[in-house]
Simulated assay, not measured.
Amino acid sequence: MVQAAERRTGRDETEDERADRMWGELMQEIRVAQMGVQILFGFLLTVVFTPKYADLGHTEHAIYIVTVVLGATATGALIGPVSLHRLVSGRRIKPRAVEWASRLTFIGLVLLLVTTASSLLLILRVATHDAFVPWLVTAVVAWYLVCWFVVPLWVRRRYTTK
């Protein structure tokens, strides 16, 4: 009787091959996040030059400044892996570069989440002064947390075979 083939759970690749594959996947992920953060950051930079900016209150000015700084830090973290790759390319440390680029990307995503939440808070405070604004922003942040972190962590835990 022929036994069923043993189920393979991994890839047959060297550490360098794995690093190359993971680097390519990471770059594709970063392209998506970079586009979003750069568009948001570009929009934020224009706000200060609009006539309505002068009419904003002290709190809205503070939220705006914090949001711009968050957007700048998110942009830096999400572009950082490109610079990292360029500066360490050819040094035979790609597995370490992938680790650090992955960390920068995760930090960038967290900063993008906070930047988006802060932007939403500012926009809704300007659009309406209703007391439901913090609740609405909290609900959106909770949704982002579910989409960006809870579902991926659940899938990782549920389907990881190691």
Rank of each mutant, 00 (worst) to 15 (best):
53 Y>S: 04
39 I>K: 09
60 E>R: 11
47 V>E: 07
67 T>W: 01
50 T>M: 08
49 F>V: 07
31 R>T: 06
72 A>V: 06
65 I>F: 13
48 V>N: 04
39 I>P: 02
34 Q>N: 15
50 T>H: 11
33 A>Q: 10
46 T>W: 15
55 D>S: 09
56 L>F: 13
69 V>M: 14
52 K>V: 14
68 V>P: 12
23 W>R: 05
70 L>K: 00
27 M>V: 15
48 V>W: 14
70 L>M: 02
78 L>M: 04
28 Q>K: 03
26 L>G: 07
58 H>N: 14
24 G>Q: 05
77 A>N: 11
41 F>R: 03
54 A>M: 06
47 V>W: 02
22 M>K: 12
40 L>I: 05
70 L>D: 00
62 A>S: 07
75 T>G: 09
23 W>L: 13
66 V>I: 14
57 G>R: 08
46 T>G: 05
72 A>T: 13
71 G>V: 14
30 I>E: 00
49 F>M: 10
69 V>F: 09
51 P>F: 01
33 A>H: 03
58 H>Y: 01
37 V>T: 12
67 T>E: 00
45 L>E: 02
68 V>G: 08
26 L>K: 03
43 F>K: 02
27 M>Q: 08
49 F>S: 09
66 V>E: 02
72 A>L: 14
59 T>R: 14
29 E>M: 00
75 T>M: 11
47 V>Q: 12
74 A>D: 12
58 H>I: 10
69 V>C: 13
73 T>S: 10
30 I>S: 00
50 T>I: 02
39 I>A: 08
40 L>D: 05
33 A>G: 01
54 A>I: 04
63 I>T: 13
59 T>V: 14
64 Y>N: 05
61 H>N: 00
57 G>E: 01
28 Q>I: 10
60 E>F: 07
27 M>W: 04
64 Y>Q: 09
62 A>L: 13
43 F>C: 01
22 M>P: 00
41 F>C: 08
73 T>E: 11
43 F>G: 03
37 V>A: 11
47 V>N: 04
56 L>S: 05
76 G>A: 09
36 G>V: 10
40 L>M: 14
74 A>V: 03
78 L>V: 08
66 V>P: 02
50 T>W: 06
28 Q>Y: 06
45 L>K: 03
74 A>H: 06
77 A>Y: 14
47 V>G: 07
74 A>G: 13
29 E>H: 03
58 H>T: 15
51 P>I: 03
36 G>M: 07
50 T>D: 13
44 L>Q: 15
70 L>F: 02
49 F>Q: 12
42 G>T: 15
66 V>T: 15
64 Y>S: 03
72 A>M: 12
38 Q>D: 04
35 M>H: 08
37 V>H: 08
51 P>V: 03
73 T>V: 10
29 E>I: 01
40 L>N: 01
30 I>P: 00
55 D>K: 09
42 G>Q: 10
65 I>Y: 15
24 G>L: 11
77 A>I: 05
77 A>K: 09
58 H>V: 15
31 R>I: 07
34 Q>A: 09
58 H>L: 13
33 A>P: 00
43 F>A: 07
70 L>E: 00
75 T>P: 01
27 M>I: 13
56 L>E: 08
61 H>Y: 01
38 Q>V: 05
71 G>C: 06
36 G>Q: 07
78 L>H: 02
65 I>E: 06
54 A>C: 01
50 T>A: 10
69 V>T: 14
23 W>Q: 03
64 Y>F: 14
72 A>P: 02
75 T>S: 14
